[in-house]
């Protein structure tokens, strides 16, 4: 209990006094995970739209794949990305292993199935005649699709946040493809693991607290957005 109490105090001190290393790690964490989430949204939303609205053979199978992918272990993704980027690997020539870019790639791979599965579910919840009605009012295909995405904006936001939540808190892939290099690829989760293994519990707790604050901030933003758009204007 002492360890926890002292750890919490020390963590608060670290955070409040603006420990440079902590903030640097926090910055990189946000940069990597937000970029990965943005990529996952850009790739995942069109795929989800095709899966939710399209009529083609294998659609159900692909939806099942996306749903399965939601539980993809980050370590497995990390392993595959590592193999791909390994010096002798297919993409080894790019020299990306142990860089933030590699971490973005791995985290995007983790987030894509989450975004696809949740977005597809969100789009299927909109009235099945929605697109037809938008077209019936004179919308082009693109405008009608835009209106559909706008209609599903809250669950879409939730899908993006779920993707972000998954990647910001994962440690396996970040560790494997990033290598946890101080000042280069060290993020909050890998830093917390390292600090814990060294017995620097206060530091580890500080990193954990920052992660919790980020999670809370994200959820607060979503909740406020939901409240704003559901309340009558």
């Amino acid at each position: 209990m002492d360890v926890l109490g002292e750890g919490l105090l020390e963590a608060l001190r670290l955070l409040l006094t603006g420990d440079e290393q902590t903030w640097e790690i926090t910055g990189l964490t946000l940069r990597v995970s937000l970029t990965a989430t943005a990529i996952a949204v850009l790739l995942g939303v069109p795929v989800a739209a095709a899966l939710a609205l399209g009529r083609f053979r294998g659609r159900q199978v692909l939806l099942a794949v996306a749903n399965t992918g939601m539980g993809l272990p980050p370590v497995v993704v990390g392993l595959f990305v590592t193999v791909l980027l390994w010096r002798d690997g297919p993409l080894g020539a790019l020299g990306l292993l142990y860089t933030p870019t590699a971490m973005v790639v791995a985290q995007a791979a983790i987030a894509v199935p989450i975004v696809v599965a949740l977005t597809a579910a969100a789009l299927r919840q909109v009235d099945p005649d929605f697109l037809l009605q938008m077209r019936a009012l004179g919308a082009t295909r693109v405008r009608a699709l835009g209106a559909l995405l706008a209609e599903a904006r809250l669950p879409l936001l939730a899908a993006a946040m779920a993707g972000f939540g998954a990647v910001v808190s994962e440690v396996g892939a970040a560790q494997m493809v990033g290598g946890n290099l101080a000042g280069e690829t060290r993020v909050l989760t890998t830093a917390a693991v390292l600090a814990t293994s060294r017995g620097q519990f206060a530091l580890a707790i500080a990193f954990g607290l920052v992660l919790l604050v980020i999670a809370f901030a994200v959820n607060l933003a979503v909740t406020l957005a939901q409240h704003r758009t559901t309340a009558p204007r």
């Binding site: 009235d127 005649d129 929605f130 037809l132 009605q133 019936a136 009012l137 004179g138």
Partner: peptide
């Protein structure tokens, strides 16, 4: 054309 469907969407 503008069309109104059976169920208001």
């Amino acid at each position: 054309v503008a069309a109104v469907l059976q169920r208001p969407v």
